[in-house]
């Protein structure tokens, strides 16, 4: 069964390239560039893994992370937080608010693909 990955980030080049790589790896990809779009996509696509940037144009990624986890049917959704902030406390904050994994930009494509695969295979 094809797993769906929801990417929530406003960096359009990054999301396009990531989508390409994930599709090449056999995933289905849904894109959202804001928190509002992400909530709509969540309802439409029921993703298996969500990649959420900590900074979004309309709200904090941490806030979105909590809302996605509270939503119906999102129980146990693995969320991988992406961040441009280098502070160590960001990691603590992400895990405290329910994120499953955390990665600081810049990262190697292979690294993030590996993590997504791992999260997707663990998802129900």
């Amino acid at each position: 069964m094809v797993k769906t990955i929801l990417i929530v980030d406003h960096e359009s080049n990054l999301t396009s390239a990531l989508r390409f790589l994930l599709e090449q790896s056999g995933f289905r990809v849904a894109l959202a560039s804001s928190g509002t779009q992400a909530e709509a996509a969540m309802a439409e696509t029921a993703p298996d893994v969500a990649l959420v940037n900590t900074t979004l144009p309309d709200r904090s990624g941490y806030d979105l992370c909590q809302r996605l986890l509270q939503g119906a049917g999102a129980m146990g959704l693995p969320i991988l937080m992406l961040t441009s902030h280098g502070l160590a406390v960001e990691r603590e904050k992400a895990f405290s608010l329910g994120a499953t994994d955390f990665i600081v930009k810049p990262f190697e494509p292979a690294a993030i693909l590996g993590r997504i695969r791992s999260l997707a295979s663990g998802a129900a």
Partner: peptide, 15 residues
């Protein structure tokens, strides 16, 4: 400000 373009660069070049 370097992190986003660097991440994108790596990912795009791999793509």
């Amino acid at each position: 400000s370097l992190r986003d373009p660097l991440t994108s660069l790596c990912t795009v070049s791999e793509s």
